[in-house]
């Protein structure tokens, strides 16, 4: 397991649970820059070039919030690595200097696509949620790596409606509580949560638009290749309330870790959590289709791990 991989389970966790599992990350940036930076940036740019209408969407009332989000993101790039990034703020805009890519780019305050411009320089998917009529809507996004949903279809949709397909989301009023949590989010205290699933293959683009392409992979999982093929897919999600426009910037950094890279205690933990998961969640997380070969792989690995050396 790479040191930058955000392992999603706490030490004690043995069962699948429903809760608002966000925790504060005061002082942390909304983005991270890791070893895959150049590779993922070029993949994002290729996707948005080929399919612009599915990777970037925004509603007109988000222009100011897009600029505020872009500026915050650029400032955080500088905080993360002053050697590689710098910005010049002028009236009506700013310029980002990116020495990793040897590029400079200007973002203008009223351009209407500030999120698109800054999104070209971060590995994260960027989403803007705005509060309208005391509810929260997804009103803009630069999203290349969604996990089974469509940015375009979800544009302008209320937060709760977007999450209707998630099994267990309304359990004990969890959905309304998460909405309330989002509405109460303050600019002083950003939050983070890790969202995990399993996927067949390391492909980052799991957009609804291309579902027939990536879903095929699930049929190809066998007990022999699962360790390599099946990935623990973890989204590091960060939530920042933007102080000036009060929009919420939601960033998603998607990480993969092949099951073979997990050592014994983690394999055991994952096995137990999968055992405890309700059927509908297994299906939603895309596991049902290769549950049998996956289980066989995990059991083999557990038997092997238990043997005294």
């Amino acid at each position: 397991m790479k040191s930058s991989f955000p392992y999603p389970f706490s030490k004690e966790q043995r069962t699948y649970s429903y809760s608002n599992d966000a925790y504060p990350i005061t002082g942390k940036p909304c983005i991270e820059v890791n070893d895959s930076y150049i590779e993922e940036i070029s993949y994002k740019r290729q996707l948005i070039k080929e399919q612009p209408g599915r990777c970037f969407r925004s509603l007109p009332h988000t222009h100011e919030a897009q600029y505020e989000a872009a500026k915050l993101t650029a400032e955080h790039l500088v905080n993360v690595s002053e050697e590689e990034f710098s910005i010049d703020v002028t009236t009506g805009g700013f310029t980002l200097y990116n020495s990793i890519l040897n590029e400079q780019v200007s973002v203008e305050e009223f351009s209407g696509d500030a999120l698109r411009v800054i999104g070209d320089h971060v590995q994260e998917d960027l989403i803007l949620m705005t509060e309208r009529d005391q509810d929260i809507y997804m009103d803009a996004g630069y999203v290349c790596f969604p996990a089974g949903w469509s940015l375009t279809f979800n544009l302008g949709m209320p937060f709760l409606q977007i999450h209707e397909p998630v099994p267990g989301f309304t359990h004990q009023g969890l959905d309304r509580r998460i909405l309330r949590f989002l509405r109460g989010l303050h600019a002083d205290t950003p939050y983070e949560r890790l969202n995990w699933s399993l996927s067949a293959g390391r492909r980052l683009d799991h957009s609804l638009e291309t579902i027939t392409e990536w879903k095929r992979e699930r049929q190809l999982v066998s007990p022999d290749n699962a360790g390599n093929k099946v990935q623990l897919r973890v989204e590091r999600q960060r939530l920042f309330r933007l102080p000036e426009t009060q929009a919420i910037l939601f960033t998603i950094h998607t990480h993969h870790c092949a099951l073979d890279e997990l050592d014994y205690p983690l394999v055991e933990q994952l096995y137990k959590i999968l055992e405890s998961m309700p059927r509908d969640i297994l299906k939603y997380k895309g596991v049902s289709e290769y549950e049998e070969p996956l289980k066989e792989y995990l059991e083999r690995k557990l038997d092997y791990g238990r043997e005294p050396s």
């Binding site: 809760s19 608002n20 599992d21 966000a22 925790y23 504060p24 509580r177 309330r180 949590f181 109460g184 989010l185 303050h186 205290t189 939050y191």
Partner: peptide, 10 residues
């Protein structure tokens, strides 16, 4: 628990 600041409801 999660936020420890009366904000997440966990």
């Amino acid at each position: 628990y999660s936020c420890r600041s009366g904000q997440c409801g966990t």
